[in-house]
């Protein structure tokens, strides 16, 4: 009888432990979605909005006092905003996609003939005018062209008054679009963030699985875009005209920031904060896969760092390093496709 009592107690304890473990799993899966939504996605969009706002102020300062120092501040401001934007390309889903904000702020190439025409016109660059412009005439790259010039060495006194008017209008448009983007995610705004927070019972994510797949596919998507589009297309055709951010010679920084965006989602870590990310999900089931993904993120960053020339030159002068970067990022993509996605499929409901 006593033995029976002991066995029963053990069975109850095991059962409770199992239930506790299951609860922990469910809790961790929810925590990952919560931390990614609030502390990576929303936080990055807020940061992007703050930085474009600061950039707009820098542009205003430059126009009021067009010194080289103020122009340099604008250039730094552009790069700072660009950093947050490129990070956020690791999750190109939701309003940035459905509201066509991505093409409105980051279309390449610039329509130079049209741009010349716009600048030589007598049009008033108000919000309505800018909103109706083609995507190839607004956003990061036309701004970059005005700030840096074709060769990246434009001086403050080379920027005409008409270019300054246009620059101011474009920076305001960029500020507004990124504010709209942040608001579309914000709890008190369009509230897209809640769709992910409530994955499993929300309209757009009827299961946690669908949210996890969306997150992982976006990570895979940006790896593919960087390796085979942004780098691969230009390298394969040896046509530097396909290079994004050529005027600021910022392409290599863009690529790195894309991969840092992937890393932020994986680690749940952005701007020094350490929250739950995809790694916390992966580590519950497969420590080996966790190690591999981290290793491939590191290798991707290291391979990009080996390209020391501006990208437009590197495709001709550092082809081995460029190919190694493509290979490293494709390898990361494969690990996410063949390791992370199946793990999600297996363990998230």
């Amino acid at each position: 009888m006593r033995n029976l009592y002991i066995i029963t107690c053990i069975l109850v304890l095991i059962s409770c432990e199992k239930e506790k473990a299951t609860n922990n799993v469910v809790s961790t899966q929810s925590d990952v979605l919560r931390d990614l939504s609030l502390n990576v996605y929303l936080s990055t969009y807020e940061n992007l909005s703050l930085r474009t706002n600061k950039f707009h102020q820098d542009v205003q300062s430059f126009i009021n006092n067009p010194t080289q120092e103020n122009l340099d501040l604008c250039r730094s401001g552009w790069k700072s905003a660009r950093e947050a934007w490129e990070n956020s390309e690791a999750w190109l889903f939701g309003p940035v996609s459905t509201n066509s904000i991505d093409p409105s702020i980051d279309t390449w190439p610039v329509d130079f003939i049209r741009l010349d025409s716009v600048l030589s016109s007598t049009a008033v660059f108000d919000n309505t005018y800018i909103n109706n412009l083609e995507e190839s005439l607004k956003g990061f790259h036309p701004i970059e062209y005005i700030l840096f010039g074709f060769n990246g060495n434009k001086s403050a006194n080379q920027i005409t008054s008409r270019q300054k008017e246009y620059l101011l209008a474009l920076s305001e448009n960029l500020r507004q679009l990124t504010l709209d983007l942040h608001n579309s995610w914000a709890l008190q705004g369009g509230n897209y963030v809640t769709e992910i927070l409530n994955a499993g019972s929300s309209n757009l994510f009827p299961s946690k699985l669908s949210a996890y797949q969306e997150i992982a596919n976006a990570m895979i998507g940006i790896c593919d875009e960087v390796a085979n589009g942004k780098i691969g297309d230009v390298f394969t055709t040896l046509d530097s005209m396909g290079e994004e951010s050529p005027f600021a010679k910022n392409s290599m920084v863009d690529f790195k920031n894309n991969i840092l965006g992937v890393e932020a989602v994986y680690l749940g870590n952005i701007n020094g904060s350490d929250n739950k990310g995809m790694e916390d999900f992966v580590r519950m089931y497969n420590l080996s896969l966790d190690g591999k993904i981290k290793q491939k993120i590191s290798q991707s960053k290291a391979a990009l760092a080996q390209i020391t020339l501006p990208f437009g030159r590197a495709i001709f002068e550092q082809p081995i390093q460029v190919q190694q970067a493509i290979d490293a990022i494709n390898s990361l993509k494969t690990e996410l496709e063949e390791g992370l996605l199946p793990l999600i499929q297996m363990h998230v409901k």
Partner: peptide
């Protein structure tokens, strides 16, 4: 995304058009 001709990349938009790329309409 197409731009006004002549251009080194994606040249040939218009002169008359509804949009600049396939994906602009078929998001």
């Amino acid at each position: 995304a197409f731009v006004t001709a002549p251009a080194p990349l994606n040249s040939g938009l218009g002169p008359l058009y509804n949009n600049v790329s396939c994906v602009s309409c078929h998001v």
